[in-house]
Design a protein around this nucleic acid. Structure first.
Lengths: 213, 213, 213, 213
DNA sequence: TATGAATGAGTGTTCATTCAT
DNA sequence: AATGAATGAACACTCATTCAT
């Protein structure tokens, strides 16, 4: 799975074949199929792992009694951190098409129990908390908004995937993502909410992490 | 081209091969290649046609001196109408990945002169007009917003493509799309703009059209 | 035929399709097949024409009572001239493989009556005259020598065909050809023949022609 | 590789497709591509093998301090022997076009390290030794002569390939080849060299081998 | 006489998957 | 548990040739 992830990060999901993975893993194809009964199974497993890791990471940064908006901000910071570190999210979003060919994240609701669902559910909860807090409009369809966010992040990842790998965490890519996120937040914010509340943390927040690289 | 469109509508761009198209068109592969010198040429032609048709349709509904917001509303109505009628937009959005594999609509700016560019440019102009009108925030990045809209519409199309074909124009799909569009508009609206201005026309506007089906 | 020749000169025999020729000739493929019942027929016709033209050219430069060696030298000069002028020979040699797939020029002897045969026969006669003159060894197999010359010239042409078209008549290419020709002449010369007799005319003989270009 | 060689021997390089080879080898195309990643790779491998085998064979028949002329004679004998036995040379010459499409053996000099280069280099060295020995003219261009020999042998092979396979080793074919070789040797021999020295060994030298067939 | 649409077998190549060992 | 040889359908694309008009 590690090797498969490496290859996906390097070349994109679509270009990675089972041959490539087996070769990289120094495994025979037979053995690979022993562990994963098919390409979709393997790729799903990778998604699950990435989703689980990111979900855990985000959850570890949440506290009880936190506001929906605050949670979303921490989600964003986690995103920035993870994006620069483990690239789990990159994988997750990049594989979305492969993963859920039948309806993307819509049908995900049925997949309760999977890590991908947790990942989805987490975001949904944050938005619903925001609604309860009075930050977001009461009639906000949380499911839809989650899908919007995921779609836009995926698109950004897909675009970034075309760039050389080192350029992906560039300020430009991340700044664009931030703008997109903010537009969505403003788009669902309740009237009267101070727009300055909806501004996401600057990326220099994670500068310490980057220095480690 | 008709058969190719049919197949794309039925199975999605990625699953359609030249063989399939030839078979559906009751043409030999040779003949198909007589008309279109390659897969990309054929698919581009389809895109261009769809883009041209939709762009013309929208433009025919615009008037001089119209506000950016009003233009966007008419864009939306055109969308609704076209979506229910010719499925051109469906095709166009579904083929986005194929068309511009390197960066989606980003690099499209270079393709000035193509119908796809007009399609993109039209939307961009509307947003910029909105900025000039004072409807949208001054620092709105019009390119980015266009990409957001296209991405989200594409995603919706992609999701809809998984549904049985008849269900695609369902009130549900369209309603979702409308909500998405409204969120974006609200997300970029200037502070103080009356949110009720940003509400898109009801779909019963096009109910007469649907009745014809 | 003119268009076909152009294309062959530009891209080499193997790369030229009937489509290309029809397009270049601004003819429909149907019409092309009306005149030439197949690719081989068309290409043979071209060969015949080139062979006829070159043969006539050479013959016009021969006189009665000329020695075999002198005739061969005039053949060489004609070659130089034609090579720089009409490129008939280039075509002829380049198409050898296509022309006579069953045994190249060997079986040509059966094709008595064709211009290609005349072309072949001319050379053979020169060598046989040289034998009668006492310039070449008595046991020289004229047929074989003709084939050697044709083979080597063809090879040179084939190599030259890879070069940009302007470079083909370069001193280098021609000088190599000359050396090859001289080696053959020396190889079949009778013992005691003064080697200096076997030296071919310098290419500045044709300098006037080149100046015209 | 064996089947590919068979087919080349039977129909010539150009007519042999990967499908043909796979079918003959009773292998699926997939399997064939498992062993050889492409047509060029497979064909190169065959060439290399043939070149290596023949080169080794020739080298095993050479001794230190041998004259260039003597070496060439042994080369000839090796040729006769190999030609009647393994047909490696047949393949090698027949594939020349495929191998080095841009200039045949000219550019081969760059491919130092390959068996094909060794094959080429061996012949060149023999000629250069002959020049040093005083057997050949001082101004002989060894590279050119090697190319001449290879071209002529290839041509002979190509012609022979059209014959029914059994007739290929016939006295006639081989005798012709011998004559050709001798003409070249005489063509580059220094003045005063006794022509009888340049006569190649009779083919009955290898009559014992033929009896085995 | 001329057209040009149509053909169909063929090209090299890829890849998820299977299965005897 | 592990292998790796084998598969075969799929892919985009080519081209000499035919034939109804």
């Amino acid at each position: 799975m590690g090797c498969a992830k490496e290859l996906i990060l390097e070349h994109g999901v679509e270009k990675v074949s089972m041959d490539d993975i087996a070769r990289k893993a120094e495994l025979s194809k037979g053995t690979l199929y022993l562990y994963f009964s098919g390409k979709d199974v393997l790729f799903s497993a990778i998604c699950e792992e990435s989703a689980a890791r990111f979900s855990e990471y985000v959850q570890s940064r949440l506290e009880d009694g936190i506001s929906g908006l605050e949670a979303l901000k921490r989600y964003w910071v986690s995103y920035l951190e993870t994006f620069g570190e483990s690239e789990d999210l990159f994988i997750l979003f990049n594989m979305r098409h492969f993963l859920a060919p039948a309806g993307s994240f819509i049908s995900l609701e049925e997949n309760a129990g999977t890590a991908s669902y947790v990942f989805y559910y987490l975001l949904k909860e944050m938005i619903e908390q925001g609604i309860r807090d009075g930050t977001f409009e009461k009639d906000t369809e949380s499911c839809l908004v989650v899908r919007i966010i995921i779609t836009l992040f995926s698109q950004a990842v897909e675009n970034a995937a075309k760039l050389p790998r080192t350029a992906r965490k560039s300020a430009l890519v991340i700044d664009e993502l931030k703008t997109v996120f903010q537009i969505i937040l403003r788009g669902i914010a309740r009237e009267g909410i101070d727009p300055s509340c909806l501004i996401l943390p600057e990326m220099n927040v994670i500068s310490k992490l980057e220095k480690k690289d």
